[in-house]
Amino acid sequence: MNKKILSNIFLSTLYLSSFTFGGGYVIVTLLKKKFVDELHWIDQQEMLDLVAIAQSSPGAIAVNGAIVVGYKLAGLPGVFCAVLGAVIPPFVILTVISFFYTAFKENLMIQAMLNGMKAGVGAVILSVVYDMGGDVVKEKDPLLIILMAASFIAAYFYHVNVIFIILTAALAGVCKTIIRKLRNEA
């Protein structure tokens, strides 16, 4: 039985990781479909909390999603199988691409394709930023808007190390939590 669960975890994450375009959020949704709606191995409310853990932890959300599901279903062996399944597809695909990249980088048509796509990638990324930034502004919390502006200035004009910016923002979050707790007690 345990073996069946482990192989099911491995095959599910392997399959999802091979065929899911569009980032971690999509994979997490599909994990839910598989393990909550199809197999009924995890209940709906618990899955929501697990997804929250996957999304609020550092690292790739697809990998984190695999870990929470693997741990919930089969403990550490489950984590191992889930991560292995999630990582093998990108590892194999990018190894093949990396091999060809060196060979094809000099090809004029491939160069033209990649050059043309740069403007498209820029548009895709800035479009995501527009949506995410809009969500931040909608919260109407001055602290968050100041954090956003300050991080941009620090990263763009002063080239501050991104790890430092992340730690500073996290610290602001901790301070905010503490201040609110103290106020609630007072």
Binding site: S56, M132, L144, L147, S151, V162, A169, A170, G173, K176
Partner: peptide
């Protein structure tokens, strides 16, 4: 809470 204040910094970066 921590994640909430990380988000604006991440958007900017």
């Amino acid at each position: 809470d921590i994640l909430e204040s990380l988000r604006p910094a991440v958007v900017s970066m």
